[in-house]
Simulated assay, not measured.
Amino acid sequence: MTDVRIGVIGLGNMGTPHAKNLINNEVPGAVLTAVCDARAERLDWARQELGGDVALYENMEALINSGQVDAVIIATPHYYHPDMAMQAFAEGLHVLVEKPAGVYTKQVRLMNDAAAKSGKVFGMMFNQRTNPLYVKLKDLIASGELGEVRRTNWIITNWYRAQSYYDSGGWRATWAGEGGGVLINQAPHQLDLWQWTTGLMPKRVRAFCYFGKHRNIEVEDEVTAYVEYDNGGTGVFITTTGEAPGTNRFEVAGERGKIVVEDDKLTFWRLRVPEPEFNRTYQGGFGQPECWKCEVPVRGTATQHVGIMRDWVNAISQGTPLLASGEEGIHGLTLSNAMLLSSWTDSWVDLPLDEDLFYQLLQERISKSSTAKEADEYRKLDLSGTH
Protein backbone atom coordinates (compact mmCIF):
# COMPACT_ATOMS: atom_id res chain seq x y z
CA MET A 1 0.00 0.00 0.00
CA THR A 2 1.13 3.55 -0.73
CA ASP A 3 1.85 5.75 2.28
CA VAL A 4 -0.59 8.56 2.96
CA ARG A 5 1.20 11.84 2.19
CA ILE A 6 0.53 14.33 4.97
CA GLY A 7 1.00 18.07 5.27
CA VAL A 8 1.04 19.86 8.63
CA ILE A 9 -0.43 23.37 8.66
CA GLY A 10 0.92 25.40 11.58
CA LEU A 11 4.24 24.67 13.28
CA GLY A 12 3.52 25.83 16.79
CA ASN A 13 2.82 24.14 20.11
CA MET A 14 0.87 21.30 18.51
CA GLY A 15 1.88 21.21 14.86
CA THR A 16 5.57 20.88 15.72
CA PRO A 17 5.23 17.61 17.68
CA HIS A 18 2.83 16.27 15.05
CA ALA A 19 5.48 16.87 12.39
CA LYS A 20 8.16 15.27 14.57
CA ASN A 21 6.03 12.19 15.17
CA LEU A 22 5.54 11.76 11.44
CA ILE A 23 9.24 12.25 10.67
CA ASN A 24 10.14 9.74 13.38
CA ASN A 25 7.88 7.11 11.77
CA GLU A 26 5.52 6.98 14.73
CA VAL A 27 2.55 6.70 12.36
CA PRO A 28 2.81 3.60 10.15
CA GLY A 29 1.49 4.09 6.64
CA ALA A 30 2.03 7.85 6.68
CA VAL A 31 4.79 10.14 5.48
CA LEU A 32 5.29 13.86 6.11
CA THR A 33 5.70 15.56 2.73
CA ALA A 34 4.96 19.23 3.44
CA VAL A 35 4.55 21.82 6.18
CA CYS A 36 3.22 25.35 6.24
CA ASP A 37 3.77 28.35 8.50
CA ALA A 38 3.69 32.08 7.82
CA ARG A 39 6.66 32.74 10.11
CA ALA A 40 10.13 32.54 8.61
CA GLU A 41 11.70 31.30 11.84
CA ARG A 42 9.42 28.27 11.94
CA LEU A 43 10.23 27.41 8.34
CA ASP A 44 13.93 27.74 9.20
CA TRP A 45 13.37 25.27 12.01
CA ALA A 46 11.58 22.90 9.63
CA ARG A 47 14.40 23.16 7.10
CA GLN A 48 16.93 22.14 9.73
CA GLU A 49 14.92 19.54 11.63
CA LEU A 50 12.65 17.87 9.09
CA GLY A 51 15.05 17.29 6.23
CA GLY A 52 15.16 18.19 2.57
CA ASP A 53 12.38 15.83 1.50
CA VAL A 54 9.71 17.91 3.26
CA ALA A 55 8.39 20.82 1.18
CA LEU A 56 8.04 24.17 2.95
CA TYR A 57 5.23 26.63 2.30
CA GLU A 58 4.43 30.10 3.61
CA ASN A 59 0.68 29.82 3.06
CA MET A 60 -1.92 27.10 3.17
CA GLU A 61 -3.25 27.62 -0.35
CA ALA A 62 0.12 26.77 -1.87
CA LEU A 63 0.38 23.60 0.21
CA ILE A 64 -3.07 22.21 -0.52
CA ASN A 65 -2.72 22.97 -4.26
CA SER A 66 0.79 21.51 -4.50
CA GLY A 67 -0.21 17.96 -5.36
CA GLN A 68 2.25 16.78 -2.70
CA VAL A 69 -0.28 15.83 -0.02
CA ASP A 70 -3.24 13.49 0.30
CA ALA A 71 -4.22 14.76 3.74
CA VAL A 72 -3.56 17.66 6.11
CA ILE A 73 -3.35 18.18 9.85
CA ILE A 74 -4.61 21.64 10.84
CA ALA A 75 -2.89 22.92 13.99
CA THR A 76 -3.58 26.65 13.90
CA PRO A 77 -5.44 29.17 16.10
CA HIS A 78 -9.08 28.29 16.67
CA TYR A 79 -10.79 30.68 14.27
CA TYR A 80 -8.86 29.19 11.33
CA HIS A 81 -9.94 25.59 11.83
CA PRO A 82 -13.28 25.45 9.94
CA ASP A 83 -12.24 27.68 7.02
CA MET A 84 -8.98 25.83 6.47
CA ALA A 85 -10.71 22.47 6.69
CA MET A 86 -13.30 23.54 4.13
CA GLN A 87 -10.56 24.68 1.74
CA ALA A 88 -8.80 21.35 2.11
CA PHE A 89 -12.00 19.37 1.51
CA ALA A 90 -12.62 21.43 -1.63
CA GLU A 91 -9.23 20.25 -2.92
CA GLY A 92 -10.09 16.62 -2.25
CA LEU A 93 -7.92 16.18 0.84
CA HIS A 94 -8.52 14.23 4.04
CA VAL A 95 -8.44 16.41 7.16
CA LEU A 96 -7.49 16.06 10.83
CA VAL A 97 -8.26 19.16 12.91
CA GLU A 98 -6.75 20.06 16.28
CA LYS A 99 -9.25 20.74 19.02
CA PRO A 100 -11.45 22.69 19.31
CA ALA A 101 -13.46 22.23 16.12
CA GLY A 102 -13.83 26.01 15.96
CA VAL A 103 -15.09 28.91 18.04
CA TYR A 104 -18.81 28.90 17.22
CA THR A 105 -21.09 26.11 16.07
CA LYS A 106 -22.56 28.04 13.16
CA GLN A 107 -19.15 27.94 11.46
CA VAL A 108 -18.41 24.35 12.49
CA ARG A 109 -21.72 23.17 11.04
CA LEU A 110 -20.57 24.47 7.64
CA MET A 111 -17.31 22.54 8.07
CA ASN A 112 -19.24 19.35 8.85
CA ASP A 113 -21.40 19.84 5.76
CA ALA A 114 -18.32 20.31 3.60
CA ALA A 115 -16.75 17.17 5.06
CA ALA A 116 -19.85 15.12 4.32
CA LYS A 117 -20.05 16.37 0.73
CA SER A 118 -16.35 15.69 0.13
CA GLY A 119 -16.48 12.03 1.11
CA LYS A 120 -13.04 12.40 2.68
CA VAL A 121 -11.93 11.15 6.10
CA PHE A 122 -12.47 13.86 8.71
CA GLY A 123 -10.90 13.43 12.13
CA MET A 124 -10.67 15.53 15.30
CA MET A 125 -7.67 15.53 17.65
CA PHE A 126 -9.54 14.34 20.72
CA ASN A 127 -6.54 12.47 22.02
CA GLN A 128 -8.12 11.84 25.43
CA ARG A 129 -10.44 9.35 23.74
CA THR A 130 -7.42 7.02 23.62
CA ASN A 131 -7.22 6.98 27.43
CA PRO A 132 -8.21 3.47 28.60
CA LEU A 133 -9.94 4.95 31.65
CA TYR A 134 -12.50 6.78 29.54
CA VAL A 135 -12.78 3.93 27.04
CA LYS A 136 -13.69 1.63 29.94
CA LEU A 137 -16.11 4.17 31.39
CA LYS A 138 -17.87 4.48 28.05
CA ASP A 139 -18.08 0.69 27.79
CA LEU A 140 -19.57 0.29 31.28
CA ILE A 141 -22.25 2.89 30.58
CA ALA A 142 -23.07 1.73 27.04
CA SER A 143 -23.33 -1.91 28.14
CA GLY A 144 -25.92 -1.05 30.79
CA GLU A 145 -23.67 -2.08 33.66
CA LEU A 146 -24.35 1.24 35.41
CA GLY A 147 -28.00 1.39 34.45
CA GLU A 148 -29.64 4.61 33.34
CA VAL A 149 -27.46 7.63 34.09
CA ARG A 150 -29.00 9.90 36.69
CA ARG A 151 -26.23 12.37 37.47
CA THR A 152 -22.87 13.48 36.09
CA ASN A 153 -20.36 15.70 37.87
CA TRP A 154 -16.99 16.75 36.46
CA ILE A 155 -14.62 18.94 38.46
CA ILE A 156 -11.71 19.78 36.18
CA THR A 157 -9.70 22.54 37.83
CA ASN A 158 -6.13 21.39 37.21
CA TRP A 159 -5.73 23.54 34.09
CA TYR A 160 -3.64 26.07 36.01
CA ARG A 161 -2.29 28.97 33.94
CA ALA A 162 -0.28 31.92 35.34
CA GLN A 163 -0.58 35.47 34.04
CA SER A 164 2.70 35.08 32.15
CA TYR A 165 1.06 32.40 30.00
CA TYR A 166 -1.64 34.83 28.88
CA ASP A 167 0.88 37.61 28.33
CA SER A 168 2.98 35.47 25.98
CA GLY A 169 0.87 36.13 22.86
CA GLY A 170 -1.34 38.94 21.58
CA TRP A 171 -4.18 36.63 20.57
CA ARG A 172 -4.39 34.63 23.80
CA ALA A 173 -7.42 35.03 26.06
CA THR A 174 -9.16 37.64 23.90
CA TRP A 175 -12.50 37.48 22.13
CA ALA A 176 -10.90 38.74 18.93
CA GLY A 177 -7.91 36.43 18.97
CA GLU A 178 -9.04 33.24 20.66
CA GLY A 179 -12.80 33.43 20.98
CA GLY A 180 -12.92 32.41 24.62
CA GLY A 181 -10.91 31.18 27.56
CA VAL A 182 -10.86 27.94 29.53
CA LEU A 183 -13.90 26.52 27.71
CA ILE A 184 -12.39 26.94 24.24
CA ASN A 185 -8.72 26.37 25.04
CA GLN A 186 -8.16 23.96 27.92
CA ALA A 187 -11.45 22.17 28.67
CA PRO A 188 -12.60 21.01 25.20
CA HIS A 189 -11.17 17.56 25.99
CA GLN A 190 -13.42 17.16 29.03
CA LEU A 191 -16.44 18.69 27.29
CA ASP A 192 -15.98 16.07 24.57
CA LEU A 193 -15.50 13.18 27.00
CA TRP A 194 -18.44 14.30 29.14
CA GLN A 195 -20.94 13.60 26.36
CA TRP A 196 -18.92 10.90 24.53
CA THR A 197 -18.63 8.54 27.52
CA THR A 198 -22.19 8.98 28.75
CA GLY A 199 -23.91 9.19 25.37
CA LEU A 200 -25.89 12.17 26.69
CA MET A 201 -26.32 15.70 25.44
CA PRO A 202 -28.33 18.00 27.72
CA LYS A 203 -31.66 19.49 26.78
CA ARG A 204 -30.85 22.78 28.54
CA VAL A 205 -27.94 24.54 30.25
CA ARG A 206 -27.59 27.15 33.01
CA ALA A 207 -24.06 28.41 33.50
CA PHE A 208 -22.17 31.03 35.45
CA CYS A 209 -19.00 32.13 33.68
CA TYR A 210 -16.61 34.58 35.30
CA PHE A 211 -14.54 36.72 32.98
CA GLY A 212 -11.08 37.79 34.11
CA LYS A 213 -11.83 36.73 37.68
CA HIS A 214 -8.36 35.40 38.51
CA ARG A 215 -6.25 36.83 35.67
CA ASN A 216 -6.02 40.06 33.73
CA ILE A 217 -7.88 38.71 30.69
CA GLU A 218 -11.21 39.48 29.03
CA VAL A 219 -12.50 35.93 28.58
CA GLU A 220 -13.77 33.28 31.00
CA ASP A 221 -11.35 31.77 33.51
CA GLU A 222 -13.88 30.14 35.86
CA VAL A 223 -17.10 28.30 35.00
CA THR A 224 -19.79 26.43 36.90
CA ALA A 225 -22.52 24.92 34.75
CA TYR A 226 -25.65 22.89 35.50
CA VAL A 227 -27.38 20.82 32.83
CA GLU A 228 -30.56 18.77 32.53
CA TYR A 229 -30.98 15.68 30.35
CA ASP A 230 -34.05 14.35 28.58
CA ASN A 231 -34.19 11.32 30.88
CA GLY A 232 -34.53 13.52 33.97
CA GLY A 233 -30.87 13.26 34.92
CA THR A 234 -28.71 16.26 35.78
CA GLY A 235 -25.07 17.23 35.45
CA VAL A 236 -22.55 19.73 36.78
CA PHE A 237 -19.35 20.91 35.09
CA ILE A 238 -16.80 23.02 36.97
CA THR A 239 -13.56 24.32 35.51
CA THR A 240 -10.99 27.09 36.00
CA THR A 241 -7.41 28.02 35.17
CA GLY A 242 -6.90 29.90 38.45
CA GLU A 243 -6.94 27.17 41.08
CA ALA A 244 -4.00 25.33 42.65
CA PRO A 245 -3.84 22.51 43.47
CA GLY A 246 -6.46 21.48 40.99
CA THR A 247 -8.80 18.50 40.81
CA ASN A 248 -9.77 16.17 37.99
CA ARG A 249 -12.70 14.03 39.15
CA PHE A 250 -15.47 12.70 36.92
CA GLU A 251 -18.38 11.08 38.72
CA VAL A 252 -21.30 9.33 37.02
CA ALA A 253 -24.20 8.01 39.10
CA GLY A 254 -26.74 5.56 37.70
CA GLU A 255 -29.43 3.14 38.76
CA ARG A 256 -26.86 0.44 39.58
CA GLY A 257 -24.32 2.54 41.48
CA LYS A 258 -21.65 5.14 40.88
CA ILE A 259 -18.44 5.29 38.83
CA VAL A 260 -15.61 7.69 39.64
CA VAL A 261 -12.58 8.41 37.46
CA GLU A 262 -9.87 10.14 39.48
CA ASP A 263 -6.10 9.82 40.04
CA ASP A 264 -5.77 7.48 37.03
CA LYS A 265 -8.18 4.96 38.58
CA LEU A 266 -11.69 3.85 37.79
CA THR A 267 -13.76 2.90 40.82
CA PHE A 268 -17.25 1.39 40.56
CA TRP A 269 -19.45 1.46 43.66
CA ARG A 270 -21.81 -1.24 42.40
CA LEU A 271 -25.19 -1.88 43.97
CA ARG A 272 -26.15 -5.52 44.44
CA VAL A 273 -29.75 -4.56 43.70
CA PRO A 274 -30.57 -1.61 41.40
CA GLU A 275 -31.79 1.39 43.38
CA PRO A 276 -35.28 1.51 41.77
CA GLU A 277 -35.84 -2.16 42.61
CA PHE A 278 -34.57 -1.72 46.19
CA ASN A 279 -36.79 1.32 46.68
CA ARG A 280 -39.82 -0.56 45.39
CA THR A 281 -39.35 -3.62 47.59
CA TYR A 282 -37.63 -2.44 50.78
CA GLN A 283 -39.89 -2.23 53.84
CA GLY A 284 -37.48 -1.01 56.55
CA GLY A 285 -36.54 2.46 57.77
CA PHE A 286 -33.07 3.76 56.97
CA GLY A 287 -31.78 0.87 54.86
CA GLN A 288 -30.02 1.17 51.54
CA PRO A 289 -28.87 -1.24 48.85
CA GLU A 290 -25.81 -3.39 49.53
CA CYS A 291 -22.84 -1.78 47.76
CA TRP A 292 -19.53 -3.24 46.62
CA LYS A 293 -16.51 -1.03 46.00
CA CYS A 294 -14.84 -2.39 42.87
CA GLU A 295 -11.49 -1.18 41.56
CA VAL A 296 -12.09 -1.87 37.89
CA PRO A 297 -8.96 -3.10 36.07
CA VAL A 298 -8.13 -0.85 33.14
CA ARG A 299 -5.71 -2.24 30.58
CA GLY A 300 -3.88 -0.50 27.80
CA THR A 301 -1.97 2.71 27.28
CA ALA A 302 -3.19 6.13 26.28
CA THR A 303 -1.61 6.63 22.86
CA GLN A 304 -2.65 10.29 22.83
CA HIS A 305 -1.96 12.38 19.71
CA VAL A 306 -0.01 9.64 17.93
CA GLY A 307 -2.88 7.25 18.53
CA ILE A 308 -5.38 9.63 16.93
CA MET A 309 -3.07 10.12 13.93
CA ARG A 310 -2.64 6.37 13.51
CA ASP A 311 -6.39 5.87 13.74
CA TRP A 312 -7.01 8.59 11.15
CA VAL A 313 -4.43 7.19 8.74
CA ASN A 314 -5.90 3.69 9.09
CA ALA A 315 -9.33 5.12 8.29
CA ILE A 316 -7.90 6.68 5.12
CA SER A 317 -5.94 3.65 3.93
CA GLN A 318 -8.08 0.79 5.27
CA GLY A 319 -11.53 2.24 5.76
CA THR A 320 -11.65 1.51 9.49
CA PRO A 321 -14.06 3.54 11.68
CA LEU A 322 -12.68 6.63 13.39
CA LEU A 323 -12.28 6.83 17.15
CA ALA A 324 -12.69 10.61 16.96
CA SER A 325 -14.79 11.67 14.00
CA GLY A 326 -14.44 15.31 13.03
CA GLU A 327 -18.20 15.74 12.82
CA GLU A 328 -18.41 15.01 16.56
CA GLY A 329 -16.37 18.09 17.41
CA ILE A 330 -19.54 20.16 17.32
CA HIS A 331 -20.96 18.44 20.41
CA GLY A 332 -18.44 19.71 22.95
CA LEU A 333 -18.40 23.11 21.25
CA THR A 334 -22.18 23.26 21.58
CA LEU A 335 -21.76 22.82 25.34
CA SER A 336 -19.19 25.60 25.64
CA ASN A 337 -21.21 27.95 23.41
CA ALA A 338 -24.31 27.24 25.50
CA MET A 339 -22.46 27.96 28.74
CA LEU A 340 -21.22 31.31 27.46
CA LEU A 341 -24.62 32.21 26.04
CA SER A 342 -26.29 31.35 29.34
CA SER A 343 -23.95 33.71 31.18
CA TRP A 344 -24.27 36.48 28.60
CA THR A 345 -28.08 36.35 28.74
CA ASP A 346 -28.28 35.43 32.45
CA SER A 347 -30.80 32.72 31.64
CA TRP A 348 -31.33 29.08 30.72
CA VAL A 349 -30.25 28.05 27.23
CA ASP A 350 -32.22 25.33 25.47
CA LEU A 351 -30.60 22.95 23.01
CA PRO A 352 -30.53 22.98 20.02
CA LEU A 353 -28.57 26.18 20.51
CA ASP A 354 -29.67 29.51 19.03
CA GLU A 355 -26.56 29.74 16.85
CA ASP A 356 -27.43 33.12 15.36
CA LEU A 357 -27.83 34.72 18.79
CA PHE A 358 -24.55 33.27 20.01
CA TYR A 359 -22.76 34.53 16.89
CA GLN A 360 -24.28 38.00 17.31
CA LEU A 361 -23.22 38.32 20.96
CA LEU A 362 -19.76 36.95 20.21
CA GLN A 363 -19.29 39.54 17.45
CA GLU A 364 -20.26 42.29 19.89
CA ARG A 365 -17.49 41.17 22.23
CA ILE A 366 -15.00 40.86 19.40
CA SER A 367 -15.73 44.44 18.32
CA LYS A 368 -15.10 45.69 21.86
CA SER A 369 -12.06 43.52 22.52
CA SER A 370 -9.23 45.56 23.99
CA THR A 371 -6.77 43.71 21.75
CA ALA A 372 -8.91 43.40 18.63
CA LYS A 373 -6.47 45.06 16.23
CA GLU A 374 -3.40 43.47 17.78
CA ALA A 375 -4.99 40.05 17.85
CA ASP A 376 -6.13 40.34 14.25
CA GLU A 377 -2.63 41.17 13.05
CA TYR A 378 -1.16 38.44 15.22
CA ARG A 379 -3.56 35.85 13.83
CA LYS A 380 -2.63 36.82 10.29
CA LEU A 381 0.98 35.93 11.01
CA ASP A 382 0.74 33.17 13.59
CA LEU A 383 -0.31 29.64 12.71
CA SER A 384 0.94 28.22 15.97
CA GLY A 385 -2.16 26.98 17.78
CA THR A 386 -2.13 26.74 21.57
CA HIS A 387 -3.15 24.71 24.58
Rank of each mutant, 00 (worst) to 15 (best):
I74F: 11
A187S: 15
L133N: 08
Q363C: 09
T386G: 07
E262C: 00
S143K: 11
K20H: 13
Y378M: 07
D139I: 00
L50T: 08
V219R: 04
A173G: 08
S168Y: 07
Q360H: 13
L271M: 10
R161H: 04
E255R: 06
C209V: 11
A372M: 11
E178W: 15
T224R: 06
N65Q: 15
G7D: 07
W159M: 13
Q87I: 00
I9T: 12
S66N: 09
N65M: 11
Q186E: 15
H18R: 12
D230S: 12
L351I: 12
K106L: 10
Q304A: 12
T240M: 10
E277I: 14
G29C: 01
L353T: 05
Q128C: 08
I330M: 05
H18S: 03
M86H: 08
G51L: 05
N112C: 09
M84Y: 14
E277W: 06
I316C: 00
V31Q: 13
V313D: 03
G254V: 03
T239P: 04
L193Y: 07
N248V: 05
D356H: 08
V35R: 04
V296E: 07
L271P: 01
K99W: 01
E243V: 12
V135K: 14
P132S: 02
A225R: 03
P202Y: 00
Q288E: 15
L140D: 01
D264M: 01
A302F: 02
F268D: 06
V296S: 05
I259R: 00
G169R: 15
N216H: 13
N21D: 13
I23E: 10
N24H: 13
Y378E: 11
L193G: 07
V149P: 00
L11Q: 04
T301E: 14
N185Q: 15
V69T: 14
E98L: 02
